[in-house]
Design a protein around this nucleic acid. Structure first.
Ligand code: SF4
Ligand code: SF4
Lengths: 146, 146
DNA sequence: CTAGATTAAGATAAAAGACTCCGAATTAAA
DNA sequence: TTTAATTCGGAGTCTTTTATCTTAATCTAG
C-alpha cells in the first residue's frame, strides 16, 4: 500500500501539517486529527506520542489539551518526520534489494537509481512544514485555520 | 526494510537477472539461485512459479530442469517484473499517503514527487534484463556465465 | 523401466506491521 | 474541589508479508 514510507509515517506527515495550520498557542487533540484526517484514533495516539518524544511536537493533557509543534514550522522538514518514524536507511539502500548498495560493482540501474534517491532526499529536506501548511489546499485542512 | 518494492519483488529482479546470464537453452534450478543469491529456497520457488504463470519465465521439472527466460532478455524490462509481482499502483499513489493523488489540490511537494515518480517509472521501463545482465559486475553473478 | 532430481501446490508457521483496548496519570474547566 | 477531557503506557489482537514444511506431480538420466 505505502510506496516508500510506512503507514505510520504517512499519518505523521499528515497530522503535523494539520497541526501547523492552527493559530499559535492552540492545541489540537487526537480526536480532532483522527476524525478529520481519517486516521485510527489509538494508532495516531502512539505516533504523536513518539513525535513528542523526538521533540517535534509538544503535548498537554487535560481539557483543551492536545498537541502543538515543538519548534518553528519552518524548521521542521519532512525529513525530520521521516527520520523520527521510519529512520533514514533508504538513503543508502539498493532499490533492487542487493545487500550492498555501493558504487563498487554498480549495476545498469545504479546511476539512475542514485539520482532518484538523491531526489527523494532533496524533496524531504527542502520542504518544511510551514510550506506544506501554507500551500495546503485540501478542504479538510481548511478547518484547522478556522 | 524494502524501499519501494516488496521483498518478493527484489528477489525476482535478482533471480531473473541471474537466469539471463546463463547460455541459451540451459536451465537454472531453484537450488542454485537460492544458494548463490542467498534467497530462501521455498520462498523463491513460489516467486518463480508466479513468474512462470505470468509468462516471464518457463520451467521444466526433473533432472537438469529449472527455469529459463520466457522471452528475449531485451524484451523483459524491470517494469514487467515489478508489474508481475507488486503491481503498478505506485504510478498513481501519493508519497505522503493522502487518499487521492491528483493535481486537484496539490500540496507543496506534489510537483517534486511527481517528477520522482516518473523517474522511477522511466528507470523501470528503460532498463531491460539484457542490459542488467550484461553490465552486472557483482561476483556472485560471474558464476552464471561459467 | 527405475531412481533420483526437480518443480508444483497447499498447509502451516513466524515475523512484522497496523490497529485496538484498557486503565493510569494529568490537568483544565466547571 | 470535583469532574471530565485528554495524553500516556502497556498489553493484546488482527492482518499482511515472509518463510518453512510436506507431499504430489513430472521428467531426465542412466
Ligand atoms: S548497483 Fe544496482 S544493485 Fe547495486 S546497489 Fe546500485 S542499484 Fe542496487
Ligand atoms: S499533492 Fe501532495 S499530497 Fe496530494 S497527492 Fe500530490 S503529493 Fe500527495
Amino acid at each position: 500500500m505505502s510506496i516508500i514510507f510506512s503507514r505510520q509515517c504517512e499519518y505523521a506527515l499528515q497530522a503535523v501539517t494539520y497541526i501547523a495550520l492552527k493559530p499559535s498557542g492552540e492545541m489540537t487533540s487526537i480526536k480532532e486529527l483522527a476524525k478529520i484526517l481519517d486516521i485510527p484514533y489509538h494508532f495516531l495516539g502512539k505516533i504523536l506520542q513518539n513525535l513528542v518524544y523526538k521533540g517535534l511536537l509538544i503535548s498537554q493533557k487535560g481539557p483543551s489539551g492536545g498537541f502543538a509543534l515543538g519548534m518553528a514550522a519552518k524548521d521542521i522538514t519532512l525529513f525530520h518526520i521521516v527520520e523520527a518514524i521510519d529512520g533514514v536507511d533508504f538513503t543508502n539502500k539498493c532499490v533492487l534489494g542487493f545487500p550492498e548498495c555501493s558504487g563498487k560493482n554498480p549495476c545498469a540501474a545504479h546511476t539512475h537509481w542514485g539520482n532518484l534517491r538523491d531526489g527523494i532526499y532533496q524533496m524531504l529536506v527542502s520542504k518544511n512544514i510551514a510550506e506544506m501548511a501554507k500551500d495546503m489546499k485540501k478542504p479538510e485542512y481548511q478547518l484547522a485555520a478556522g
